[in-house]
């Protein structure tokens, strides 16, 4: 029995395995960062359309945005990963070897990323919308009274305030997205969780006992848990610090009577 545990921990002394896992971690972080960045871009567009396209001419876009947001927010990410893997087209630009990955891997990675981006966009759209709604009507009036048109008003006055209001929520969303990206393991892409699963499925070769043991599951998944925890806990400490700073800054402002 002790032998199995020793064999399992023994795997962790292999630098090849560590490199494999750490590369997976890097992919996890990169995929999540891309998903959040593009999520902010698309989410903002969705939020703006949902909030402000009221005129009859553009109402169709508003309904499209509402449908998109509600559909993606109320269905599981895993479903969209499976759907994208089957139906999502991959442009030639991505369908070849890169970053030391095979064509099959880059293709799957691209599809799964699209699913994550689509899903994250809908969540971030609602976060941004919360930020937009917290900007007082007077700001729109001030902008209009100075002669800013709708786009200028959004770019220079409303969106900066909206983003400032939701910085903590957006940062927390990065943490959620990093965790969500583990769903990608289900379609055998190359991020942290799938790599850990791949090592586990071939652990009989690496641990030297010829079998895959319960202790291997424990050690490898423990490893994955530890890595996710370290990244996300570090991020949440940063979020906490930013929140504390904002609170401090806000309390030094004199409260103005409304």
């Amino acid at each position: 029995m002790m032998g199995e545990w020793e064999a399992s921990f023994g795997m962790l002394q292999s630098s090849a395995i560590w490199l494999y896992i750490l590369k997976g971690t890097l992919f996890t972080v990169i995929i999540s960062a891309i998903a959040v960045i593009l999520g902010v871009v698309f989410g903002s567009i969705l939020a703006l359309v949902r909030n402000y396209c009221h005129s009859p001419k553009y109402r169709i876009f508003r309904w499209a945005a509402i449908t998109y947001i509600e559909v993606f927010r109320n269905t599981p990410l895993l479903l969209w990963i499976f759907i994208c893997v089957v139906f999502c087209p991959v442009p030639d630009l991505f369908a070849h070897r890169m970053f030391g990955l095979t064509t099959v891997e880059t293709t799957l990675l691209f599809k799964a990323c699209i699913a994550l981006i689509l899903f994250t966009s809908s969540v971030i759209a609602e976060i941004v919308r919360g930020g937009l709604n917290s900007v007082p009507a007077g700001q729109f009036e001030a902008a209009a009274s100075q002669g800013f048109n709708t786009v200028q008003t959004m770019v220079y006055i409303i969106l900066p305030q909206a983003y400032r209001n939701v910085v903590p929520t957006l940062l927390s969303q990065i943490i959620t997205t990093i965790k969500d990206s583990s769903y990608l393991a289900n379609v055998a892409t190359i991020e942290l969780m799938s790599r850990v699963r791949q090592i586990l499925s071939t652990a009989n070769i690496y641990n030297g006992t010829g079998n895959i043991n319960v202790s291997d599951v424990f050690v490898l998944y423990g490893c994955a848990a530890a890595i996710y925890f370290i990244i996300n806990f570090a991020l949440s400490l940063i979020v906490r610090r930013i929140n504390a700073q904002r609170k401090k800054a806000a309390s030094t402002y004199r409260i103005v009577k409304a």
């Binding site: 007082p136 007077g138 700001q139 009036e141 001030a142 209009a144 009274s145 100075q146 002669g147 800013f148 409304a258």
Partner: peptide, 14 residues
């Protein structure tokens, strides 16, 4: 409006 008028509001709206 841009060319001809400015406004000062009750709630300042800075």
């Amino acid at each position: 409006v841009r060319r001809t008028t400015s406004m000062v509001f009750q709630q300042f709206n800075l």
